[in-house]
Amino acid sequence: MLDTCDFKTQYVLHLADDALVLGQRLSGWCGHGPILEQDIAISNISLDLIGLARQYYQYAAELIGGDTTEDSLAYFRESREFYNHLIVEQPNGDWGDTMSRQFYFDTFHFFQLQHLTRSEDLRLREIATKALKETTYHAQFSAEWIIRLGDGTKESRKRVQKSITHHFPYALEFFETTEFDKQAHDLNLGPDVRELKDKWIEKVREVLNIATLDDINSDAVAKKGGKRGIHSEEHGLILAEMQSVARSYPDAKW
């Protein structure tokens, strides 16, 4: 797939894959949240992200043309053809793990979307404008949970510190550039992701500080590969589960 579609399509697919894989992960909390109110809240974020993924996939399907649909892109591509960041495919773990993964992603997503609302591409601009409103709420929600858990009990602090430390190297992949990132930036479609890093670090530090958590590790080395289709072993399992019914009945309409 990487070889067959143009950079713009790859870029849109990359945006879609982030939203779908994280939305899929979050939907695993539905029915299993720590309290009903949070069960509802996390399902809402999942709904927003899967809804966002649909809009990007629909656009990508139009760019590719032919028989391609949002569902053929979501259900009939292999793991090696997905361009999501590694962090979004990390397991849900406990509530602290989910919030830490979410906090890093939402903070990045917010700045990414802010930039996309100024894209040269009208369609991306429209999608981003709507998503930015939702993401502003997501980012507030996850930051509040980091603060609550960090400044809550001894146990919650210990747990969320571990999650925050663990996910940090994955988060650094946000600022790694691929060929499609470069092209997208050259065409004024999206941001130069390297330029989002300072703002992201500043916001993350601010929240960690309020949460009484340790400052970021400046020596951390980015875990990368997701955007080039080199995923964790878990990724294939996420897709195997997600795609199982669709692939068992390839000619079916739902």
Binding site: C30, G31, E37, A53, E241
Partner: peptide, 26 residues
């Protein structure tokens, strides 16, 4: 079945439905 819903549309509908049930519980 949320994780295995065979289309993105059906996934959204099912997830929203199960979420509604949490709301009814509340």
């Amino acid at each position: 079945w949320i994780s295995r819903a065979p289309s993105l549309r059906s996934k959204l509908i099912l997830l929203a439905k199960v979420q509604d049930e949490a709301g009814h519980g509340l």
